[in-house]
């Protein structure tokens, strides 16, 4: 909780900064742990329901822990017309989870993003922070194998 206090201090305990505060928590923990949200609610004197409302509204936040590896498929229009949906399907099939879920062994999380703004080189997959342009269906197996 010490980290959280520093985080809150950075934002001067202002309720209006809650989105930025949650972003920092999300980037530290990869998700928003319920316990921490309750703590933030107490410290900021902000209703937990409000924080929960924000945390579920904005797509950047996740209330469930994510896996060791994060795989994000860009579903932007340019990527879509170049076959992003099939790539996502293939990931879903290979990992046996739906987009937004995490595998049971907590190894992989699969997510989608609306657009990364790299439309020219789509379809794009971001794997553990690494951008991969012109991604092909057959690359799915290769990427997952490489990380095993």
């Amino acid at each position: 909780m010490k980290n959280i206090d520093t985080n809150l201090e950075n934002y001067h305990y202002r309720k209006t900064n809650i989105i930025q505060i949650l972003q920092d928590i999300q980037s530290e923990h990869n998700y928003l742990p319920e316990k921490i949200l309750k703590y933030v609610s107490e410290r900021l004197k902000m209703p937990l329901s409000t924080i929960y409302s924000i945390a579920t509204f904005y797509a950047a936040f996740s209330l469930n822990p994510r896996g060791k590896h994060l795989c994000t498929v860009c579903m932007g229009t340019a990527c879509h017309v170049r076959g992003a949906a099939a790539i996502l399907n293939e990931f879903e099939r290979k990992l046996d989870i739906k987009a937004g879920e995490t595998t049971g062994d907590m190894n992989y999380s699969l997510e989608t993003v609306n657009c990364l703004g790299c439309c020219a080189i789509g379809p794009i997959v971001v794997y553990d922070g690494k951008y991969m342009g012109e991604f092909k269906l057959k690359d799915v197996a290769a990427v997952l194998k490489e990380k095993e």
Partner: peptide, 10 residues
């Protein structure tokens, strides 16, 4: 002022 209820998700 109880703020028990709110909208969630979207």
């Amino acid at each position: 002022g109880a703020a028990t209820l709110d909208f969630h998700h979207r």
